[in-house]
């Protein structure tokens, strides 16, 4: 099977149509507010598309299985990197057990709407709106 598999044109066209459809899904889903799930959906769709390209257009499906192993390994290492990094950012500041002290990073992520601008040292630029930083203002 590994020598020169010839893919019918029909398969290519179906995959191309699927890719176009999935691009549409990416655009459409960006208008739907799923909260934190938005990024997950976007990444899933992108991974699916990349896999389709690799499997069909790049013939990974019919190729030596060692190459498939390499491809899956790269996905696995990416998964390891993201998962373990999230063990830090999701639980930073505590053991992750107390919801009240959790997630300073999440607050930062939403800072464009909720927090005032800070200078490079993290001090608020206009102090009137921020009661979290009142201790720092005594300096």
């Amino acid at each position: 099977m590994s020598e020169h598999h010839i893919t019918p044109l029909r398969t290519y066209l179906i995959i191309a149509a699927t890719l176009l459809f999935l691009s549409g899904v990416t655009v459409w889903v960006s208008y739907v507010d799923l909260g934190a799930l938005n990024i997950v959906v976007a990444m899933l769709v992108a991974t699916l598309k990349a896999s389709l390209v690799a499997f069909f257009f790049m013939h990974l499906l019919w190729d030596d299985k060692k190459n498939l192993t390499m491809f899956l390994m790269s996905l696995m290492f990416f998964g390891i990197f993201v998962t373990i990094t999230l063990l830090d950012t999701e639980f930073r500041g505590d053991l992750g057990l107390n919801p009240e002290t959790k997630d300073p990073i999440n607050k930062r992520a939403a800072f464009y709407d909720t927090l005032p601008l800070t200078d490079t040292h993290g001090h608020p630029v206009d102090e009137h709106s921020d009661d979290h930083h009142e201790d720092k203002d005594h300096h």
Binding site: I80, I84, L87, D88, R92, D94, L95, G96
Partner: peptide, 22 residues
Amino acid sequence: GFLVWGHHMFTSGQSVFSQIVF
């Protein structure tokens, strides 16, 4: 070797949870 990188970061302020894991 791919699972232990956080042991370089024990004083970086990373979460205690990931410190224990690493």
